[in-house]
Design a protein around this nucleic acid. Structure first.
Ligand SMILES: [Mn+2]
Ligand SMILES: [Mn+2]
Ligand SMILES: [Zn+2]
Ligand SMILES: [Zn+2]
Lengths: 140, 140
DNA sequence: ATGACGATTGCAAGTAATTGCAACTGCATA
DNA sequence: TATGCAGTTGCAATTACTTGCAATCGTCAT
């Protein structure tokens, strides 16, 4: 990731290096606030807008994904070659990870029909989970 | 829509009626701010949080969709029986409407594989349009 | 070394959306 | 008519994120 940025001629400032370290070190979906607090431990002068601006930069270079998984703030994570997506039940909040291959037919249909390269790297798909569908039916 | 709300026992306050009128009267994707200003013309005491709370209510009842189409704020529109989605080029900003049928295979695969009822009523799918794909290739 | 220039940062102010709370509304009951 | 109560509203404060701007940094030419 750092190497890729260097190749593109993107200046790797100390702040950016620390943000990248946190991003790569955490295997979860992190918020800007998470990163901010983590970097603050070693560099208290870090500013939250630098974090947002660095995340914007990485997003524009397709190196991180930004997703609204609920919870009041956007979540970021580094793009790997194997994508995945999330099913989120908006009744019970449960989440399920799904493989990218599920979206492949859509990607192909959109390419074939519109010449559009759909960049769906990390989707949040909201709906009703198996359990909540059942309880909803019983209530009728 | 008003009738459906009455049936569910949702109180139809004057504020909610005015918000519903604006929502149904505009065939575009409207922002909360748009609705707020339109209602203000006839009722200057309307409060923006009442608009957001009413939109939340309608969203929870699956009567409006909320979508980030870029532009710095969320866009709302009433749910009709024929859904559609948007392709948005994050290089030139151009948008294309696509039919819901494109997403049908995904909906089916998610149902078959996970028992999850994916509620994809109004998606924004970001990527590269035909033209921008070409100019990107030429630059290499 | 010095100066110019573009890019980055910190800070403060601004924006879109949410939340806590007290006042108000509509409706049911006594 | 008076009282209680759930739900709604307006207002102010808060949150997540963005933006404008001046100070600073790194790089390169002189
Ligand atoms: Mn994920
Ligand atoms: Mn639309
Ligand atoms: Zn559920
Ligand atoms: Zn384009």
């Amino acid at each position: 990731m750092k190497e890729a940025l260097r190749k593109k001629g993107v200046p790797l400032t100390p702040q950016r290096l620390m943000i990248l370290d946190v991003l790569q070190g955490s295997h979860d979906h992190v918020s800007a606030e998470d990163i901010f607090h983590e970097v603050q431990k070693s560099y208290p002068y870090i500013n939250i807008s630098t974090v947002f601006r660095t995340l914007d930069l990485l997003k524009d270079l397709d190196m991180v994904t930004v997703t609204d998984l609920g919870g009041g703030c956007l979540r970021y994570h580094t793009v790997t070659n194997s994508h995945h997506h999330h099913l989120i039940c908006h009744r019970c909040g449960s989440t399920t990870e799904i493989e990218d291959s599920v979206l492949e037919p859509v990607r192909r249909a959109i390419d074939a029909g519109y010449g559009f390269e759909a960049q769906m790297h990390h989707f949040a798909i909201w709906g009703l989970c198996r359990e909540c569908r059942h309880t909803d039916k019983e209530q009728q």
